[in-house]
Amino acid sequence: MKANNPLIVVRDLSIAFAGAKAVDGLSFTVAAGEVTALVGESGSGKTVSGLSIAGLAPPEARITGRVTLAGADILGRTPRERRLAGHPAVSMVFQDPQAALNPVLTIGEQIVEAVRADGRTGARAAAARALELLDLVRIPEPGRRFSEYPHRLSGGMRQRVVIALALAASPVALVADEPTTALDVTIQAQILQLLIRLKDELGMALLLITHDLGVVAEAADRVLLMRDGRLLEDRGVRDFFDGPRHPYGRALLAARPGRRTRRGPRPRLADTSAPCLIGGEGSGAC
């Protein structure tokens, strides 16, 4: 594979739940070594798109289209089926580390379990690999943390464990769904920096799903803007912030609070008028 070949190619991806279209004809590519941000509000279809790329879409989802990973067709296959077929792994990092970790297993047990999912690694080698992974995500004193339970860790440390779990399968791509949203601002910056460093060290592709344009400005190389299941923009991050072409992108940028200057009145924030799915006609609330 050539260096700038796309690692993941998504063509005409559509996802429907009980007849309702969540994603409608989505096409984009993700390159290795790049941070591609999939941006949109709740209900835009960004999360379910990420789930289907990672092979984790719920079974009731009706998925059509084509997703290839380094040329191999992976759409509709679970991570296990992909592994058995010899495809490289795509792992997922979720928003809420509390929910992503098993409260009754130690950190070490959970990572060992993930490492041994390949069916080839022995217990001793898996434990060594687990310690290595904890070190890789820069958890201090990995030996001590190994035998601790998730509730003993702070939110930031838990998210590091979740990232270590995602790395257990030696993925070539990481789908991170709002990985910093549940964290404090100082810890957000640490986790974002960690994800970018890991992407560089391990040569992965990083698909960053977020609604936070600050995170996009900090981390993304490319921006994919979604709304109502459709792709509105696919541009380099500087181009996007210099002036999105789509009115929705412009409205989103203008809706960010905090653009206030020292002098002058508090600016009014833009209303992006997302259509309300819950019948709030004329309510003005959504």
Binding site: Q188, A189, L192, I196, G214, E218, R238, R259
Partner: peptide, 13 residues
């Protein structure tokens, strides 16, 4: 630590 307003104002890396 607050995220930057645009890519020219700061990059996490």
């Amino acid at each position: 630590a607050a995220p930057a307003a645009n890519p020219d104002a700061g990059r996490a890396a």
